[in-house]
Design a protein around this nucleic acid. Structure first.
Length: 433
RNA sequence: GUGGCCAUAGCUCAGCUGGUUAGAGUGCCAGGUUGUGGCCCUGGAGGUCGCGGGUUCGAAUCCCGCUGGCCACCCCA
């Protein structure tokens, strides 16, 4: 029988990676919460309509990247390809914005897109994100960028490039769209197939095209179509970023792939990912999305970041910490007769807060000790016939290679002392180098 | 979705232009006599050579299809 493998474009998170992810996820939650953002979790399946209406029918995501299926009642459901629409639906549906504005939220979870997989691009991937709902102030655009910025800092990642742009108001964009169409229409015959289609469906996306790069360079500038309030909004964002010490690069051609954005949009990049997908995430203001979903008009801003890609960067620059869940102690019996006593000792150590592995296998003691070091334990506790008889245990310091016999009553404190000494030594070494 | 490259033990790979029971290193398990580790020695387990067809007296090795991975495009996380 053929073995069953994980579906194409999906990946198991094995223990080594699990610890690194938890490190990243915890860091994001901690930074977001330091700004007053609270956690939220929404369904992984949503009505297909949430995305077709919210994200936009002419976007790549809705056109060809969604996993959509029918439930038994004939309703069309979709594995969520992004998190903003669902979060906004949840918040406005529960009227959270009627209690305290803005509503500040952070989240983390799996998302799904049906693009052809390659490194850094999976059918199922993970995003962390925040949404700030109910207020239109440019200060909040800057705030969310600052959250992301501090998050990268918390992970020890330098060299993040931040690109920002303003899409302006709906009226600004209508004006710009007209200008773009006027510019491109005479050139229609020379455009690539995609661009010819975009010209009629979604002219802003023309700026994304790399093949017609020459034409893009000469195209009208978005900024010139923005009215005074829109310019002021963006100028304020730029000023706030500067005073927060965040380096932002203006990119007139940055439009983002989702229809619901307006005013501020931004993306984060890192050069070290060169071959792979180098965008770590992005976001922006989406004041119009609430109405598209049938809710009262509500301003909001947010971002989403790709966990797998950020981990690739963190691994490449070497800032991923070693597994904090590593074992402290391995407790082993010498012969089967001491299994019960050894179990009791392990229990006692766990009660005292230590991570203790119990090894009562019928195996040579030297193998058990070898296993102890390999499991990452820094102390081995040996429970043999002599120890059971004298109500004591042998505590062996695996790094120092020394050992002592102590009464059970003093066991926990003795082990704790050894562990504390080791961790002090480790940090000292870490700080020196 | 389009094009290209790849697929041999848990891991890293060897296997020349098709020829007898497919190898190495490493890892794993066990032993090196009676309760002590990260070294060493010995032994062992582990592969339908991704899957399915075809060519051939004979295929891991050639051809086709499929699946999966990677790369580029596209797009983004």
């Amino acid at each position: 029988m053929p073995q069953i493998a994980a579906p194409k474009g999906t990946r198991d998170i094995l223990p080594d990676e699990f610890a690194a992810r938890r490190w990243l996820l915890d860091a994001h939650a901690a930074v977001a919460e330091s700004f007053g953002y609270r956690g939220i979790e929404t369904p992984i399946i949503e009505s297909t309509e949430l995305f077709s209406r919210g994200v936009g029918t002419d976007t790549d995501i809705v056109e060809k990247q969604m996993f959509t299926f029918e439930d038994r009642g004939g309703r069309s459901l979709t594995l969520r390809p992004e998190g903003t629409a669902g979060t906004l639906r949840a918040v406005l549906g529960a009227h959270l914005d009627q209690e305290l504005r803005p509503v500040r939220l952070h989240y983390a979870g799996p998302f799904f897109r049906a693009e052809r997989p390659q490194a850094g691009r999976q059918h199922q991937f993970t995003q962390v994100g925040i949404e700030c709902i109910g207020e239109g102030s440019p200060a909040l655009d800057a705030e969310i960028i600052e959250v992301a910025w501090r998050f990268f800092k918390a992970l020890g990642i330098d060299g993040i490039h931040l690109q920002v742009n303003s899409l302006g108001s709906p009226e600004d964009r209508a004006r710009y769209r007209t200008a773009l169409v006027a510019y491109y229409t005479p050139l229609e015959a020379s455009l690539c197939d995609d661009c010819r289609r975009r010209l009629h469906t979604n002219p802003l996306r023309l700026l994304d095209c790399k093949r017609d790069a020459g034409l893009v360079a000469a195209a009208p500038i978005l900024w010139e179509s923005l009215d005074r309030p829109s310019r002021d909004h963006f100028t304020t964002v730029l000023r706030d970023l500067e005073s927060a010490g965040i380096d932002a690069i203006r990119n007139d051609r940055l439009v983002r792939g989702l229809d619901y954005y307006g005013h501020t949009v931004f993306e984060f990049w890192h050069d070290i990912l060169q071959g792979a997908q180098s965008s770590l995430g992005g976001g922006g203001r989406y004041d119009g999305l609430a109405e598209l979903l049938g809710f009262p008009s509500t301003p909001a801003t947010g971002y989403a970041l790709g966990v797998e890609r950020i981990l690739m960067v963190a691994r490449a620059v070497g800032t991923v910490p070693s597994d904090p869940a590593a074992t402290d102690v391995l407790v082993c019996s010498v012969e089967p007769g001491q299994a019960e006593a050894a179990a009791g000792v392990a229990r006692l150590l766990r009660d005292a807060g230590m991570h203790s592995i119990l090894d009562v296998a019928e195996r040579r003691l030297d193998r058990k000790l070898r296993g102890a070091s390999r499991a990452g334990a820094r102390v081995a506790v040996i429970v043999g016939e002599n120890e059971v008889g004298s109500d004591s245990a042998v505590v062996r310091d695996l790094d120092g290679r020394s050992q002592q016999t102590v009464p059970i009553a003093e066991l926990a404190s003795t082990v704790i002392r050894i562990l504390a000494r080791d961790s002090v030594a480790e940090t000292a070494i870490g700080e020196d180098s």
